[in-house]
Design a protein around this nucleic acid. Structure first.
Lengths: 204, 204
DNA sequence: AAACCCCGGTTGGCCAGCCAGCCAGCTATC
DNA sequence: GATAGCTGGCTGGCTGGCCAACCGGGGTTT
């Protein structure tokens, strides 16, 4: 093998293991994701998890990496579709709302990772990098829309991005812990608040 | 003993156990909070945890209950000091910011509980109740300030409360995963956004 | 081309440690 | 002496990690 990274990333089975672990953690939590279960779901032997990753910790770091990619990609997809101020608010909050409602495991996984990050600096770094990447992607999209005259923003793009993403996640948390509440008016009010920072431009 | 609840809540030792568990979970996480550790820190024997709570799960439920009280009280304290629109934004976001920076364990604990809630409906209920109570307290304060002519709000008090609390938690999450970033401008922008929903009234 | 070997990839049995829960019994108080 | 409160040794089950052995295919020797 060339080195650990190559070995880990190249192999088909290693990928299957990471995916199985990711899925297991989102359903069963970290504690419930034993090598036994994960190996069975990945269709490999227990020993192989150890062979590739050495320890549960390192496997979890890979999971965090992988998950960050997935999340970033998901957000980028939403962003690309936003063409004016309304779209931005709508798409972002709506997609988070839909995620919380229809893919709670996706939310669970992130919670699990944040919790882990409290005791594992490597995972904290991974999440921090993801946060930064999300901000950058969002800010870049904002800048593009500003340049096209489709929106105007009330602060630096990175700042606006930070605020909007943060707001979104906070509301998502809220949706999660109040599953049966009617969030329609809340979403509406939140959009109005964000409207103080992002308005339609001349060409919107 | 009269019944489980009475037994649990009345005893001095039971309270010490819940507190020790709460503190341990916030530092070591749920997995790291073994009966052995917690008992030692509470100054009682391991057996007593079982005697009072029966299982780790039930003890964790008590922790969630206790923690909800503490959090609600903390927020109420902040709220009481807010007398106009600026105060509201300032106090809320600043206090969350300070908490994240100076009492990360307090944040860790909530993450841990949210994570638990994914697999323990009883804890989910507890957190849901806390969320609701926070909204109510916040909304009530808003209403009072409106009645006093100190602020005007752009939506029903409960809705505004939901939004502001949610925004705050989202930003807190963000502070947490970007510890070294300069959040000054972000806080500033967030305050302006909230300003779209909460403005100073005639008597502010 | 047949026999052989080499080695990374893979397997699964094994082990030592840990932990929640159980329970037999102790203590103090009335 | 009865009963509630409390203790801590014990255990069975589980888990992460270790490792000895196996497999298969590509290269090398004969």
């Amino acid at each position: 093998m060339a080195n650990d990274a190559t070995k880990t990333l190249a192999t088909d089975k290693a990928l299957r293991i990471v995916d199985a672990m990711r899925s297991s953690v989102s359903r069963r939590g970290v504690a419930g994701s034993t090598f036994d279960h994960v190996a069975r779901e990945a269709g490999v032997s227990r020993g192989l998890l150890h062979y590739y990753f050495g320890s549960k910790e390192r496997l979890l770091v890979e999971v965090a990496k992988r998950d960050s990619e997935v999340r970033l990609e998901a957000m980028s997809g939403e962003l690309a579709r936003a063409a004016n101020a309304e779209d931005l608010g709508m798409l972002w909050v709506r997609s988070l709302y839909a995620t919380v409602r229809h893919e709670p495991a996706f939310v669970s996984l992130l919670l699990e990772l944040y919790t882990l990050a409290q005791r594992m600096p490597e995972i904290a770094d991974e999440l921090s990098a993801m946060t930064q990447a999300m901000t950058d992607a969002f800010a870049q999209r904002l800048q593009t829309l500003v340049d096209d005259g489709r929106i105007t923003i009330g602060a630096a793009p990175e700042v606006v991005a930070d605020v909007v993403i943060g707001f979104g996640h906070g509301l998502a948390l809220r949706f999660m812990s109040n599953p049966e509440a009617d969030m329609e008016p809340v979403v509406e009010a939140a959009k109005r608040a964000v409207g103080a920072l992002v308005r339609n431009g001349p060409k919107a």
